[in-house]
Measured scan of single mutants.
Amino acid sequence: MQIFVKTLTGKTITLEVEPSDTIENVKAKIQDKEGIPPDQQRSIFAGKQLEDGRTLSDYNIQKESTLHLVLR
C-alpha cells in the first residue's frame, strides 16, 4: 500500500509499505529516499509519536494515510 510522509519543509514523500511493516522499517525506507538517519526521525500520526517496534497496523495506518516527519 502507499502512504505519504510530509516533512516540515512541506515536501511529501510517497512510500510503498505493508500494514505489517514496523515503524523502524518505514524510517529505513525514508532514509533510502531522503538520506535522513532513522535516529533523527520522529514520525507523528494523528497527533501521536510512533514507536519503532510497533507496526503500521498497530496505529491503524491505512493506505494513503499521511505521516508527519519531524527531525530531532
Rank of each mutant, 00 (worst) to 15 (best):
residue 4 F to K: 07
residue 50 L to A: 01
residue 1 M to Q: 00
residue 40 Q to E: 12
residue 32 D to N: 11
residue 26 V to N: 00
residue 29 K to C: 03
residue 12 T to A: 03
residue 41 Q to G: 06
residue 34 E to D: 09
residue 39 D to R: 10
residue 42 R to I: 15
residue 47 G to N: 07
residue 3 I to C: 03
residue 16 E to F: 13
residue 28 A to R: 15
residue 48 K to I: 14
residue 4 F to G: 02
residue 27 K to N: 06
residue 49 Q to T: 14
residue 46 A to E: 14
residue 69 L to Y: 02
residue 31 Q to T: 10
residue 50 L to T: 02
residue 13 I to H: 04
residue 63 K to W: 07
residue 3 I to F: 01
residue 56 L to P: 01
residue 63 K to Y: 06
residue 54 R to D: 04
residue 6 K to M: 09
residue 38 P to K: 14
residue 21 D to N: 06
residue 19 P to Y: 07
residue 23 I to S: 02
residue 28 A to C: 06
residue 31 Q to N: 11
residue 3 I to Y: 01
residue 53 G to P: 05
residue 23 I to N: 01
residue 53 G to W: 14
residue 44 I to V: 09
residue 8 L to W: 15
residue 65 S to M: 11
residue 45 F to Y: 12
residue 65 S to I: 04
residue 22 T to D: 03
residue 40 Q to K: 12
residue 21 D to E: 09
residue 14 T to Q: 08
residue 36 I to H: 08
residue 38 P to V: 15
residue 69 L to F: 05
residue 23 I to R: 01
residue 14 T to F: 07
residue 45 F to K: 04
residue 54 R to G: 06
residue 41 Q to T: 13
residue 26 V to E: 01
residue 9 T to Q: 11
residue 49 Q to A: 12
residue 1 M to T: 02
residue 1 M to D: 03
residue 16 E to C: 13
residue 25 N to L: 13
residue 68 H to C: 09
residue 29 K to V: 04
residue 1 M to G: 02
residue 51 E to F: 06
residue 48 K to T: 12
residue 4 F to Q: 04
residue 36 I to M: 08
residue 24 E to P: 02
residue 2 Q to F: 13
residue 23 I to A: 01
residue 49 Q to D: 14
residue 60 N to L: 05
residue 49 Q to K: 10
residue 72 R to T: 13
residue 67 L to Y: 00
residue 66 T to C: 04
residue 56 L to Q: 01
residue 7 T to M: 15
residue 35 G to C: 05
residue 57 S to N: 09
residue 6 K to N: 05
residue 15 L to Y: 00
residue 32 D to A: 13
residue 61 I to R: 01
residue 36 I to P: 07
residue 18 E to W: 12
residue 17 V to C: 04
residue 43 S to R: 05
residue 67 L to R: 00
residue 54 R to M: 12
residue 13 I to C: 02
residue 11 K to W: 08
residue 32 D to E: 14
residue 67 L to W: 00
residue 58 D to I: 01
residue 10 G to K: 03
residue 7 T to V: 10
residue 41 Q to P: 07
residue 45 F to D: 04
residue 29 K to T: 03
residue 61 I to W: 01
residue 9 T to Y: 14
residue 29 K to D: 02
residue 20 S to I: 06
residue 25 N to E: 12
residue 32 D to P: 03
residue 41 Q to S: 09
residue 9 T to R: 10
residue 62 Q to E: 10
residue 40 Q to N: 10
residue 55 T to Y: 04
residue 21 D to Q: 03
residue 72 R to F: 12
residue 52 D to E: 09
residue 51 E to T: 04
residue 17 V to S: 00
residue 15 L to G: 00
residue 44 I to S: 06
residue 14 T to C: 07
residue 27 K to L: 14
residue 38 P to T: 15
residue 56 L to F: 02
residue 1 M to F: 15
residue 34 E to M: 15
residue 32 D to I: 13
residue 52 D to R: 03
residue 7 T to K: 02
residue 20 S to N: 12
residue 19 P to E: 07
residue 48 K to E: 13
residue 32 D to W: 09
residue 39 D to T: 10
residue 23 I to G: 00
residue 61 I to A: 02
residue 70 V to P: 02
residue 22 T to A: 02
residue 2 Q to V: 15
residue 1 M to C: 04
residue 56 L to A: 02
residue 21 D to R: 01
residue 43 S to H: 15
residue 42 R to D: 13
residue 44 I to N: 05
residue 55 T to L: 07
residue 59 Y to M: 04
residue 8 L to D: 13
residue 35 G to N: 07
residue 69 L to P: 00
residue 17 V to Q: 00
residue 47 G to P: 05
residue 22 T to V: 04
residue 71 L to F: 08
residue 56 L to K: 00
residue 65 S to K: 03
residue 43 S to F: 15
residue 17 V to W: 03
residue 61 I to T: 01
residue 3 I to M: 01
residue 58 D to F: 13
residue 49 Q to H: 13
residue 13 I to K: 00
residue 47 G to I: 04
residue 2 Q to N: 11
residue 50 L to V: 03
residue 60 N to W: 04
residue 38 P to E: 08
residue 55 T to P: 10
residue 16 E to L: 13
residue 65 S to R: 02
residue 37 P to Y: 09
residue 57 S to K: 12
residue 12 T to G: 02
residue 65 S to F: 05
residue 62 Q to S: 10
residue 24 E to T: 07
residue 35 G to F: 05
residue 20 S to M: 09
residue 33 K to H: 11
residue 52 D to L: 05
residue 67 L to G: 01
residue 20 S to C: 07
residue 5 V to P: 00
residue 15 L to M: 04
residue 15 L to H: 00
residue 4 F to I: 05
residue 15 L to A: 01
residue 14 T to S: 09
residue 39 D to V: 09
residue 48 K to M: 14
residue 22 T to W: 04
residue 8 L to Y: 12
residue 56 L to H: 02
residue 36 I to R: 04
residue 68 H to P: 00
residue 69 L to M: 12
residue 5 V to I: 13
residue 26 V to C: 02
residue 66 T to Y: 08
residue 54 R to T: 05
residue 5 V to Q: 00
residue 40 Q to P: 07
residue 20 S to T: 12
residue 54 R to K: 13
residue 35 G to M: 05
residue 16 E to V: 12
residue 34 E to F: 14
residue 39 D to Y: 11
residue 8 L to A: 13
residue 64 E to A: 09
residue 54 R to C: 11
residue 42 R to N: 13
residue 14 T to N: 05
residue 52 D to A: 06
residue 54 R to V: 06
residue 35 G to H: 07
residue 3 I to S: 00
residue 44 I to H: 06
residue 46 A to N: 15
residue 64 E to R: 07
residue 62 Q to K: 11
residue 40 Q to R: 11
residue 13 I to W: 07
residue 5 V to N: 02
residue 5 V to A: 02
residue 25 N to Y: 11
residue 41 Q to V: 15
residue 51 E to N: 05
residue 6 K to T: 10
residue 46 A to V: 06
residue 25 N to P: 00
residue 31 Q to C: 11
residue 3 I to D: 01
residue 26 V to T: 02
residue 12 T to K: 06
residue 26 V to P: 01
residue 47 G to H: 07
residue 40 Q to D: 10
residue 65 S to A: 11
residue 63 K to R: 10
residue 20 S to K: 07
residue 26 V to D: 01
residue 54 R to N: 09
residue 38 P to D: 08
residue 50 L to Q: 01
residue 65 S to Y: 06
residue 47 G to A: 04
residue 49 Q to W: 15
residue 11 K to N: 09
residue 15 L to N: 00
residue 55 T to I: 05
residue 44 I to P: 02
residue 60 N to F: 07
residue 6 K to D: 04
residue 42 R to T: 15
residue 64 E to T: 04
residue 43 S to Y: 15
residue 59 Y to W: 03
residue 20 S to Y: 10
residue 40 Q to W: 11
residue 25 N to D: 11
residue 49 Q to R: 10
residue 13 I to R: 00
residue 4 F to M: 05
residue 59 Y to N: 02
residue 40 Q to S: 10
residue 63 K to C: 05
residue 22 T to R: 06
residue 22 T to P: 01
residue 48 K to V: 14
residue 39 D to N: 12
residue 2 Q to D: 05
residue 22 T to M: 06
residue 57 S to L: 13
residue 55 T to M: 09
residue 45 F to T: 05
residue 37 P to S: 10
residue 62 Q to T: 14
residue 1 M to Y: 13
residue 13 I to L: 08
residue 20 S to Q: 09
residue 70 V to A: 08
residue 66 T to I: 13
residue 57 S to M: 12
residue 12 T to I: 14
residue 6 K to Q: 09
residue 46 A to K: 14
residue 56 L to I: 09
residue 29 K to G: 01
residue 11 K to I: 10
residue 65 S to V: 06
residue 15 L to F: 03
residue 50 L to I: 04
residue 30 I to C: 02
residue 4 F to L: 04
residue 24 E to G: 12
residue 61 I to P: 02
residue 34 E to Q: 07
residue 16 E to I: 13
residue 46 A to G: 10
residue 47 G to T: 05
residue 1 M to N: 02
residue 59 Y to H: 03
residue 7 T to G: 06
residue 12 T to Y: 10
residue 50 L to S: 01
residue 4 F to D: 01
residue 65 S to H: 08
residue 28 A to H: 12
residue 31 Q to I: 09
residue 28 A to E: 09
residue 37 P to R: 10
residue 54 R to W: 10
residue 10 G to F: 03
residue 38 P to W: 15
residue 67 L to T: 00
residue 42 R to G: 13
residue 9 T to F: 13
residue 19 P to L: 09
residue 7 T to W: 12
residue 55 T to A: 06
residue 65 S to L: 04
residue 9 T to E: 12
residue 48 K to C: 11
residue 42 R to P: 12
residue 18 E to H: 14
residue 48 K to A: 11
residue 45 F to H: 08
residue 58 D to K: 00
residue 32 D to L: 14
residue 42 R to M: 15
residue 54 R to I: 06
residue 45 F to M: 06
residue 21 D to K: 00
residue 2 Q to H: 12
residue 43 S to G: 14
residue 58 D to P: 00
residue 33 K to F: 10
